[in-house]
C-alpha cells in the first residue's frame, strides 16, 4: 500500500490510521479527543486532513480514517489551518478557564476565542473519560447526557454512582482538567460526578489507600501473578513485604 503524506511517499504493509502513519514519519497532526490507549472517536475534529483519492478530495479526521492505497494526504493546508483554528476557538469558549486546554491549543496559535465564554464547566465533551471508564476500567459509570451543545458527561441521573470504583482514570485522561479527585480522610470525592467512595485502610499501617470498591473489583479480576493480600496494602507496606519475602528466600537459599 502506497500513500503520500505532505509530499512524502510512504509504503505500508498493514492497515493503520492516518494519524499513526503521520506520527511514524514525524508529521505532527494536532489532536485532543484522541488517546493512544483508547479507541478512536473523532469528536474534537482537530486532526482533520485533506484526502485525495480517485480524483475526489474530502476532509476527514486522521484519528479515525485508515489509510487506503493511493491516498494523497495533506495535513496542513491553508483551509485546514483556518478551520482548525475556528474549531479550536469553539473548544476554548467551552472551557475558557482551562490552562491545560489553553496550553494544547496554543500550538495552533489560538490564545483566545471570538465566541462568548461558556462558564458552566471545563468539559469539552471529548469523551476520553467515557471511553476510559468503559473500555479500560470496565465500569461504564459515566456517559453522555443531553443533546447538542448542552451535552455533558455524567452518571445516570447525576447522582452518586454505585458502579464507579474511584480509580481516577477519567481525571487522568481529561485534556482540560475538568474532572478533579479529592481524598479527604476516609473518603474519595469525584465532585464533578457527584460521586464519593469510602477508602480502605492499609492492613499494615492503617494509611488510607484505594477505594474499597476498587479493591473488591481488582480482587475479582484475574491477577494470578499477584498475591491477593497485596491489594489491601499501601505502596510502602507492599514494597516492605515483597522485600522481606525476597530476603527470606535469599537467606534460605544460602
Amino acid at each position: 500500500m502506497k500513500v503520500i503524506i505532505d509530499g512524502k511517499d510512504v509504503e505500508l504493509q498493514e492497515q493503520k490510521t492516518i494519524l499513526k502513519v503521520a506520527e511514524e514519519i514525524g508529521i505532527e497532526i494536532p489532536t485532543l479527543c484522541h488517546h493512544d490507549g483508547l479507541s478512536s472517536y473523532g469528536s474534537c475534529r482537530l486532526c482533520i486532513v485533506e484526502i485525495t483519492n480517485n480524483g475526489n478530495t474530502e476532509i476527514d479526521t486522521a484519528c479515525t480514517r485508515s489509510v487506503e492505497d493511493g491516498m494523497e494526504i495533506k495535513t496542513a493546508t491553508e483551509r485546514l489551518t483556518e478551520e482548525r483554528k475556528l474549531i479550536a476557538e469553539l473548544l476554548l469558549a467551552q472551557a475558557p478557564e482551562s490552562e491545560k486546554l489553553k496550553a494544547s491549543l496554543s500550538k495552533l496559535g489560538v490564545q483566545e476565542s471570538r465566541f462568548e465564554a461558556r462558564e458552566d464547566s471545563d468539559c469539552i465533551v471529548c469523551g476520553r473519560c467515557v471511553r476510559a471508564c468503559k473500555e479500560e476500567v470496565g465500569a461504564g459509570a459515566i456517559t453522555f447526557v443531553g443533546r447538542g451543545y448542552k451535552t455533558k458527561v455524567d452518571t445516570p441521573f447525576s447522582i452518586n454512582s454505585d458502579v464507579c470504583i474511584g480509580c481516577t482514570a477519567c481525571a487522568e485522561v481529561c485534556p482540560t482538567g475538568a474532572i478533579t479527585v479529592e481524598d479527604e480522610e476516609a473518603m474519595r470525592y469525584i465532585r464533578y460526578f457527584n460521586t464519593e467512595l469510602e477508602l480502605a485502610e492499609c492492613a499494615e499501617c492503617g494509611k488510607y489507600i484505594n477505594p474499597k470498591r476498587m479493591i473488591e473489583k481488582l480482587k475479582k479480576e484475574d491477577f494470578a501473578y499477584y498475591p491477593e493480600e497485596n491489594f489491601e496494602l499501601c505502596e510502602a507496606c507492599r514494597r516492605n513485604k515483597e522485600m522481606n519475602k525476597f530476603a527470606d528466600k535469599f537467606l534460605e537459599a544460602k
Binding site: 475534529r45 469553539l90 473548544l91 465566541f115 465533551v125 443533546r147 447538542g148 451543545y149 448542552k150
Partner: peptide, 21 residues
Amino acid sequence: TVSESCGKCTPCSEGTQRMLE
C-alpha cells in the same frame, strides 16, 4: 438542528449553536 445535534463533534454541537446565537 441545534436541539437535535447529538453533541458528539465540535463543529456541529458548538458551531451550530454559535450560528444560532
